[in-house]
Design a protein around this nucleic acid. Structure first.
Length: 634
RNA sequence: GCUCAAGUAGCUCAGUAGGUAGAGCACCUCCUUGGUAAGGAGGAGGUCACCGGUUCGAGUCCGGUCUUGAGCUCCA
């Protein structure tokens, strides 16, 4: 009986005796065999030395596939654990998975790892790579596994084993003198790992629970070639240059000040201008789509938060009450109760729905000190909030409109790649299951209808409703959550929201809570990082810098600036008696999109010379031509 | 909040074995009026995050507080 191995392209290779995945790879091409990291059969990842004794499918994974990377990095994590155990035998190992970019391994050790120690570990890893130690799979019963890891004193492994059913077969992987409890698969030998960099060490709780012991984590990354590692390190440097905190300082956009308080943002004129432009655009787009703008106060009486339930489920994120004539008031962590109160101020007919109330609403939330991060995570921020109140029948249309609107809005700022998540009903949620299913289906159907790829986060919804989140992918691959579209089965009930239906009886409306940008602060940060500070012309706080070559052209420069301003451009004149090169350099570093250079020739002919940021000299031209050029970029 | 690191002029950073602070850029004044990324000279600017301790003497050593960074947990 031949054994048929079916490959992804549909071709079949027949063998008359059992054959390993690696052998099949060899038969396809030795180079493929060399590049292969692991294999996959019937949807399950396997080692390359897995032997097929019956008809099977086979997919080979190289470092190019996600699965290949994951296995490669996971194997490197094992290698790192081996090196650490060799250097410090008393250290206990815990777990060490692959992550999106690289891997980590958590160790139980009193002292944290210093940079010198990381280098030492890296060296030991390289020595172990040179030995090309094979990773060998072993299978044992739970009893045997407990004995094995118990004898080694690896208490964390015993804890993991305790959660595995008694009857399961446990797999372990050994390379050289190191053995780890592991599902696998792994690369064939340590020699496959060519380039390693241990990036940083930090603390991490055992099982991510802050009640547990703080372990010492080492992050690292590895590649099949040194070239890839170098590229990755360059990429990290590039990311650091785009950090919004650095750009915010360099371009004088915002600051966060000790005395004012952590997590509270001061918007400087340039940053405030950008924010103004974002917000104006936001308002126009909302009005165009049938939203009504509202404003609401920054504080509200405790009754309001009692009714909304925030004092119950959200209290730990709220600041403590302030006393106003014997009554408790709370600064708002959310805008919803106010928007609902606006809705409830009047009686509504089904004929008015949907009602879409929008507000750039500033909220304050208590965030633990350790989580604050530039503008990405702050204590006071402005949500681009809106609540859509509609009949159940209108829900599908509204959801679809909302998704289209969200993507259009994000695209208008230059973003192109999005990650979309659908989060479904968690345990302990409120509302009827039927409503949940209906809402969840509506969200899913809209996404599918629009042909959008999304991942499902099962049980990841809020307790009050399912949601869609959209994350923006950065030019260098990082993802930031902006848009969130959440159904709410809780608040309409709590606030007894109603509308009068065609049958002349009150009905409970559906409510969708949504933010497209998320928060103006986070969106602003993402925008900055995405563009690396080089904002599109319409968002640049200063669009044109007028640079007179000598003081003699100062009047002419002012004249040109005035004309540009009349056409709606934001421009400034650099009047200093500095050399032109000096002023150009400064304008370039401030990332001002256009420079308008005027010397005696331009002044004499009524012309200007344009220079575009990062692109250089565009030559001299009439003022009208220059205006045309600028307008084309808007 | 927890673990580890850091906090010196507006910015980026030096500061060696504890002896009351230094550079570059930016800023101010003067000279220079220069054609596509830094012209020259001079000047001003710091209770070395804050509080306490050790010491004859602390930017430097010790303790505490605040803030920042990398993570953990959580989230827009």
């Amino acid at each position: 009986m031949p054994i048929n191995i079916t490959l992804p392209d549909g071709s079949v290779r027949s063998y008359d005796k059992p054959v390993s995945a690696l052998q099949v790879a060899q038969d396809i091409s030795p180079r493929l065999a060399d590049a292969s990291i692991c294999a996959e059969t019937e949807g399950k990842l396997i080692d390359l030395n897995h032997v097929f004794d019956k008809d099977s499918t086979l997919v080979l994974h190289t470092f190019k596939t996600d699965a290949g990377k994951e296995i490669y990095w996971h194997s490197t994590a094992h290698l790192m654990a081996q090196a650490v155990k060799q250097l410090w035998p008393e250290v206990k190992v815990t777990i060490g998975p692959a992550i999106e970019q690289g891997f980590y391994y958590d160790f139980d050790r009193d002292a944290s790892f210093t940079d010198e120690e990381l280098l030492k570990i890296e060296q030991r890893m390289q020595e172990l790579c040179a030995q090309a130690l094979p990773y060998t799979r072993g299978e044992l019963s739970k009893q045997e596994a407990i004995k094995l890891f118990g004898d080694m004193g690896e208490s964390y492994k015993l804890e993991i084993l305790a959660e595995i059913p008694d009857t399961d077969i446990i797999s372990s992987y050994r390379q050289g003198d190191f053995i780890d409890l592991c599902r696998g698969p792994h690369i064939s030998n340590t020699g496959k790992i060519k380039a390693i960099k241990l990036l940083k060490s930090s603390g991490a709780y055992w099982r991510g629970d802050e009640k547990n012991k703080m372990l010492k984590r080492i992050y690292g990354i590895s590649f099949p070639t040194n070239k890839e590692l170098t590229e990755y390190l360059v990429f990290l440097e590039e990311a650091a240059k785009r950090d919004h905190r650095k750009l915010g300082k360099d371009l004088d956009l915002f600051s966060i000040n000790d005395e004012v308080g952590p997590g509270l943002v001061l918007w400087h004129p340039n940053g405030a201008m950008i924010r103004h432009l974002i917000e104006s655009h936001w308002k126009e787009e909302h009005l165009r789509r049938g939203y009504k703008l509202v404003y609401s106060p920054h504080v509200g009486r405790s009754n309001l938060w009692q009714t909304s339930g925030h004092l119950g489920f959200y209290k730990e994120n709220m600041y403590s009450a302030m006393d106003v004539e014997g009554q408790d008031y709370y600064i708002k962590p959310m805008n919803c109760p106010f928007h609902i109160s606006i809705y409830n101020a009047n009686l509504h007919s089904y004929r008015e729905l949907p009602i879409r109330l929008g507000e750039l609403g500033t909220v304050y939330r208590y965030e633990r000190s350790g989580v604050l991060h530039g503008l990405m995570r702050v204590r006071g921020f402005t949500q681009d909030d809106a609540h859509i109140i509609c009949t159940p029948e209108q829900m599908d249309v509204e959801v679809e409109k909302l998704i289209v609107f969200s993507l259009d809005m994000l695209k208008s700022f230059g973003f192109k790649d999005f990650l979309i998540y659908l989060s479904t009903q968690p345990d302990g949620s409120v509302g009827e299951k039927a409503d949940w299913d209906k809402a969840t289906d509506s969200l899913a159907a809209s996404l599918s209808k629009l042909g959008l790829d999304y991942s499902v986060d099962a049980g990841g919804g809020a307790f009050y409703g399912p949601k869609i989140d959209i994350k923006i992918k950065d030019a260098i691959g990082r993802a930031w959550q902006c848009t969130t579209i959440q159904f709410d089965f809780n608040l309409p009930e709590r606030f007894n929201m109603t509308y009068v239906g065609a049958d002349n009886t009150p009905h409970r409306p559906y409510m969708i809570h949504r933010a497209i940008l998320g928060s103006v602060e986070r969106f602003f940060a993402t925008l900055l990082e995405y563009h690396g500070g080089n904002l599109p012309l319409w968002l640049a706080p200063v669009q044109v810098m007028l640079i007179p070559i000598t003081d003699a052209q100062l009047d002419y420069a002012n004249e040109v600036a005035e004309k540009l301003q009349l056409q709606g451009f934001r421009c400034e004149v650099d009047p200093r008696s500095e050399k032109m090169g000096y002023k150009i350099r400064e304008a370039e570093m401030k990332k001002i999109p256009f420079m308008c250079i005027v010397g005696k020739n331009e002044a004499a002919n009524g012309e200007v010379t344009l220079r575009q940021h990062t692109k250089g000299d565009l030559g001299s031209m009439s003022l009208d031509t220059a205006l045309e050029t600028l307008k084309q970029q808007l």
